[in-house]
């Protein structure tokens, strides 16, 4: 329903640049995940798009229209806050009704009830509707806060780590629900998370942020397979990409300073010997901690592996990623 475009967006807080000249086009109907360590500027971007904060420089466009000076209400966005921000003096139902009760909308009460019940059902909080908003667990508060966004049909959803307090099962349930809701409504969704699985499974696009700069924007596969830097490569993939000096193996280009090895870049059973330090059975995958010429490498192996601590395992790189001295990727 609406494309979101950020052009040359900058924001300073004192001397820290929370956002540094961000150019980003979020295609209409896409599900964009913003990745980056704490303090990278993710929340700040959402606040700029929503209109809660104004940029020092640059512009936000939604649906091609410049948003400067428009309030959150006029932008037709809705936001799930990192710190929930529920209305503490209302109960859960009143919290969920609040966005629909606008006097201007004149939504009939039956319609409000239907919507609230539907959303409560999806978020599995139907039994808590009459609780006071302060008499909830952290995960319940977080779901109420998601619910407040879902009762509406805005053109842009903004969600700041919406699933961070939930248990693994609920998280995977809601991942699917959110993805469905977004796909069915065709709305654009900008989503902040630290969770790689969320990024890989839900996103149509991923934006990688580093100290207020957008270092890469692309599909999750692009970021994973074709990262522009060590930094971007480290954002996705479990276990994390291994970065070792370029001269550890032969055959690196001359400019290369380091090699990035994901598990699929490490061929087992060929090449030179490494020592197995540890075998971790995680259920869905089995990780090997290897020692190769004094460098630690983590890779995955067959779940039914016979390997044990102290065993020898020959390995060699297979189409690894090469990076120069500054950490930028070599083509």
């Amino acid at each position: 329903m609406a494309e979101v475009r950020l052009s040359g967006l900058s924001k300073m807080f004192g001397t820290t640049a929370a956002l540094d000249n961000i150019d980003l086009t979020v295609p209409d109907g896409s599900f964009v995940v913003l990745l980056g360590p704490t303090g990278a500027g993710k929340t700040t971007i959402l606040r700029m798009v929503s209109g809660l904060d104004t940029p020092d420089n640059g512009d936000v466009y939604i649906g091609g229209k410049p948003m400067a000076g428009l309030t959150p209400a006029q932008r037709d966005v809705t936001m799930v806050f990192q710190q929930y921000s529920l209305y503490p003096h209302m109960n859960v139902r009143q919290n969920l009704e609040f966005p629909l009760k606008s006097p201007l909308l004149r939504t009939p009460q039956a319609e409000i009830d239907r919507k609230v019940n539907e959303v409560a059902e999806i978020l599995q909080i139907s039994h808590k509707l009459d609780n006071k908003a302060t008499a909830l667990s952290g995960g319940e508060m977080q779901r109420v806060s998601i619910g407040r966004a879902l009762v509406r049909n805005p053109s842009v959803y903004l969600m700041d780590e919406p699933l961070s307090s939930l248990d693994a099962k609920l998280r995977s349930d809601l991942r699917i629900e959110l993805k469905n809701i977004q796909a069915n409504s065709g709305a654009t969704l900008i989503y902040v998370t630290h969770d790689q699985v969320e990024a890989m499974t839900m996103a149509t696009h991923v934006g990688v942020l580093d100290h207020g700069r957008l270092v890469q924007f692309g599909t999750p596969r692009q970021i994973y397979e074709d990262p522009v830097s060590i930094y971007a490569a480290s954002r996705l993939g479990q276990p994390r990409i291994n970065v070792v000096p370029a001269d550890l193996f032969g055959g690196a280009p001359t400019a290369a300073r380091s090699i990035g090895l994901r598990p699929e870049h490490i061929l087992q059973g060929e090449g030179e010997d490494s020592t197995v330090n540890r075998v971790e059975h995680l259920g869905d995958q089995t990780r090997l901690h290897l020692d190769y010429k004094g460098h630690d490498l983590i890779t995955v192996t067959d779940p039914h592996t016979e390997l044990q601590r102290g065993d020898r395992l020959p390995i060699r790189p297979n189409n690894p990623l090469y990076f120069d001295a500054s950490g930028a990727r070599l083509a």
Binding site: F81, Y87, H89, L104
Partner: peptide
């Protein structure tokens, strides 16, 4: 942050005053 949430929920300043400021 409560006012910011209300802002995003499209509550006018008038409505914020009566549904948030006064009750709280």
């Amino acid at each position: 942050s409560i006012y910011e949430a209300a802002e995003c929920d499209r509550a006018s300043k008038w409505r914020q005053f009566w549904t948030i400021t006064i009750p709280m």
